[in-house]
Each structure stands twice: as C-alpha cells, then as structure tokens.
C-alpha cells in the first residue's frame, strides 16, 4: 500500500466531530433538530433552514454509488487506476469518496449499486471513510 499520510486533512471546528467519528470507525452526520434533515459536509448551521440547533448522529454506513470516474494514472500519490466516487447515503446527503474492494474497471460498476462504508486508517489520528460494494452473500 502506498503511504498516503500526506493526504490527511486538518479538521475545522464544525467538522471535528465528523473526523473524530471516523477515527472510531463511525460515520457521523450533522442533523438539524429544527427541520430534521441531515446534511454533509458538516456546517455550523443547517444549510436548508439556517437553524443552528444541530445534533450529530451515527449514519447507517449504507448507500448507493451515485456516480464515479476512474483516473488511470497516480494522483497525489494514490496509485492509478482508482475509483473516485460520489456515494448517496441512506440518510440523503452525498459524500465524495473512493470505492475500494472491487477492480477499477467500469464493467464491475453500475450507478446506484449498493455500497457500505469502510474506514481507511490514513494516520494515527485520521481515518478516511471509503466505500465497498455490499457483498452478495451478506
């Protein structure tokens, strides 16, 4: 595996609980207590109704592959080809991610296929949520 420590982001106050959750291998989402909607990326206020009465909830980790592309060459040290993806979470919001655990060949991929979260421990303090296809036997 390539060493990708240099990719570790630095959280900001409004995103810190998300990154702390990822470290525990929990996908945390902000949810508005006023309008009930989840949003992502995490903000200080609900982007739908502008309430600042938010709570953090653990997402199911299930979702669908909304769309993807497959860069062929290395990018930022990530060896190519790899699958860059947008996953639509069961709770509604979409997240940019990588799809792993499947050959990066378009033949293996279909928009809306079911995926689930897995965590990639990038450094001692940062884990990245990534997704893999839900196995058929599961």
């Amino acid at each position: 595996m390539a060493d990708l420590k240099h990719l570790a982001p630095t959280p900001t106050p409004e995103t810190k609980p998300f990154w702390e959750g990822a470290k525990r291998h929990e996908l945390m989402l902000p949810r508005c207590k006023s309008c009930g909607k989840h949003h992502f990326y995490p903000r200080s206020d609900c982007p739908f109704c502008w309430s600042n009465d938010l709570e953090w909830v653990k997402a199911s980790g299930k979702g669908k592959l909304h769309t993807f592309s497959i860069p062929q060459r290395p990018i930022m040290g990530i060896p190519g080809p790899f699958i860059a993806a947008i996953v639509e979470l069961e709770e509604g919001p979409r997240i940019a991610t990588n799809l792993i655990g499947v050959d990066p060949d378009p033949k293996n991929l279909r928009c809306d296929m079911e995926v689930e979260v897995v965590f990639d421990d990038l450094t001692d303090t940062v884990s990245l949520p990534k997704f893999r296809p839900v196995s058929k036997s599961a």
């Binding site: 982001p9 630095t10 860069p71 930022m76 860059a84 993806a85 997240i95 940019a96 990588n98 990245l128």
Partner: peptide, 9 residues
Amino acid sequence: WQFEVPYGI
C-alpha cells in the same frame, strides 16, 4: 482538502 483531495479528486 477535507472532503475531496484525500480521494484523489
């Protein structure tokens, strides 16, 4: 960087 770069986007 927080939500796209680590995924090579």
